[in-house]
């Protein structure tokens, strides 16, 4: 065998290995989804969605869990988005290259890499204890807001960067101030991009369990929260709790709750992808 044929065979072999590696990822993903749907789908009915948790698996439902998740979604959006978008606008539109701005950038990159459970410790000490908010929805939402803030800031900046300078220059030439330009020209032009990033950040927040456990969200909440000061649970914590029980029936409940959680996660991601594609098609600078 010549060197050339040997190298060709190696090349071909790697090609097959490449396909194999792709398949590992895809088969794993497929197996996970099929397993969860076959185990949990039969459990999902109206009662499951509208029942309170119970000691008996067959009577347990996820009403408090998804109500908590919905509350967290809304509160986290209300806190994280104005803050994150404002910070993104400041860093992209207002700062010059100063020491402070490069320090802010490094700091935000660092925050993005801090494990979520550390944010839980921060929330526990600052919101639950120092500010006395207790293990409430508000504490949980504030904690998750800090967690996703770096993502919101970074994606806002990316979206603002995509708006060409000519738009700003045109606005300034007509006598608009900095803020008028930002508010009336730059932000509307980058709205789609910002929204995409913001929704992706939310889908991250929806799946988080660890920081909320540390903050003190409970596995068993016998009522639907009615104000931000109420105690709460969320879908990921309910899933974690059911997965930790020894009885097999609770695993079926967990699978059913996972279907609901994946539905919300995929829905949010789907909206984000749709918005991004539409944005890319519509605007040609």
């Amino acid at each position: 065998m010549t060197n050339t044929t040997r190298n060709r065979i190696k090349d071909k072999a790697f090609q097959f290995f490449g396909v194999f590696c792709l398949l590992v990822g895809l088969v794993f993903l497929g197996a996970l989804l099929v397993d969860i749907v076959t185990r949990g789908m039969g459990r999902i009915d109206w009662d499951f969605l509208t029942s309170l948790p119970s000691r008996r698996a067959s009577r347990s439902g996820i009403l408090t869990a998804w109500a908590g998740t919905l509350w967290i979604l809304v509160l986290t959006s209300l806190i994280a988005f104005p803050l994150g978008i404002a910070a993104g606008v400041y860093l992209e539109e207002y700062t010059k290259k100063t020491k402070l701005s490069s320090f802010l950038e490094i700091n935000i990159a660092n925050l993005a890499g801090v494990p979520s459970i550390i944010y839980g410790l921060l929330g526990l000490e600052v919101f639950v204890r120092q500010m006395g908010l207790g293990a409430s929805l508000l504490s949980g939402a504030l904690t998750l807001s800090l967690l996703i803030l770096p993502i919101v800031i970074v994606t806002t900046r990316e979206a603002l960067k995509a708006v060409p300078q000519t738009v700003r220059q045109g606005s300034f030439a007509l006598g608009a101030t900095k803020w008028q330009t930002t508010w009336r020209q730059v932000l509307p032009a980058s709205f789609g991009g910002i929204l995409t990033g913001v929704i992706l950040a939310l889908s991250r927040a929806v799946g988080e369990a660890a920081p909320l456990i540390v903050v003190g969200a409970l596995a068993y909440v016998p009522f639907v929260p009615s104000s931000p000061n109420d105690e709460f649970t969320v879908l990921p914590i309910q899933i974690f709790n059911w997965t930790s029980r020894p009885q097999a029936e609770f695993l079926v409940n967990a699978a059913a709750a996972i279907i609901m959680l994946l539905f919300i996660t995929f829905l949010l991601n789907g909206i984000a992808v749709y918005l991004r594609n539409r944005q890319q098609k519509k605007i040609k600078w």
Binding site: L22, G25, L26, F28, L29, L32, D35, I36, S203, V206, G207, E208, A209, P236, I239, F240, T243, L251, A254, A255, I258, L261, L262, T265, F266, N269
Partner: peptide, 16 residues
């Protein structure tokens, strides 16, 4: 499709 792997909540992976 591969990116979907990164969007699944980690509690789901734990269950699996």
């Amino acid at each position: 499709i591969l990116e979907v792997l990164a969007t699944i909540p980690t509690v789901v992976y734990g269950f699996f």
